[in-house]
Amino acid sequence: MAQEAPGEDQRAAGFQALVDADHRLEPRDWLPDRYRSMVLRQIAQHAHSEVIGMQPEGNWITRAPSLRRKAILLAKVQDEAGHGLYLYAAAETLGVAREELVARLHDGRQKYSSIFNYPTRTWADVGAIGWLVDGAAITNQLALTRTSYGPYARAMVRICREESFHQRQGFELLWALARGTEAQRRMAQDAVDRWWWPTLMMFGPPDARSPHTAQSMAWRIKRVSNDELRQRFVDMAVPQAAALGLTLPDPELRWNADRGHHDFGPIDWEEFQRVVGGDGPCNAERLRVHRAAHDDGAWVRAAAAAFAAKHRDPVAVPA
């Protein structure tokens, strides 16, 4: 007797059992549509963030104040382009091409981390991004090395190694400024003042108000909640700020011995919603630059495709 194909419910139960057993899911496995779309949304947002993040930091490559710092920053921005590539490749395992993901970024269906909607006004901002923003990213990404979707988890392992390097470089940049001239010290403090709160917002809304958290945790896409990751980050950053000799701009920040964690003041979630919604200082500029580069490059991609077709070049240049 022919065996009946498993029904949707059976497949879903089998899938959940694999997740619960901490099995790494691969593109060939049966995956619920909603799982696919949640993972795709997260990987694509992460890829877009790496690529858009090249803009605020790239803003200082041409003006870096020493050749050594220029080389470090250039290598860092290059790493981000590389992370964007791994992540787009991970997203493509879910059957959506990079060209389509870029189109979704441009028409607003997909987003990038809102942190990159803030401007890099001074050289110290490069240090603050490295120390705080990359520090927050690592906190989040270390948890994601255990995410249930295999291609994403593997990309995270590789990316975390490079990000921890970037964080140390950012810290060291601020360390030099904090021990430099009065103007340099002021520059460092001003950057930390401006980046601290937006960095705490990077972990997303509080768990109680996070729309995707419950399902995402159940499917082990997300392994640790927003609030817990935020707390881990604060606990890590406080002693580092003290070592730098810089102040974190929160009068309520203090050690709570009962909890074994630092307490911190309220986050301005209205600002977060406003910036996510498009009304941040650089939202329009970041997308304009990305669209312009994409549009200006259209003739180059067309030429590569035409050449490949003429010469049967096995390696066509992707869009």
Binding site: V51, M54, Q55, G58, I61, T62, K70, L74, V77, Q78, A81, G84, L85, Y88, V289, H290, A292, A293, D296, G297, A298, V300, R301, V317, P318, A319
Partner: peptide
């Protein structure tokens, strides 16, 4: 370095 984030493809960046 002026090309950074402005190249025709990510590979080219």
């Amino acid at each position: 370095t002026e090309w950074s984030a402005h190249a025709p493809t990510l590979e080219e960046d």
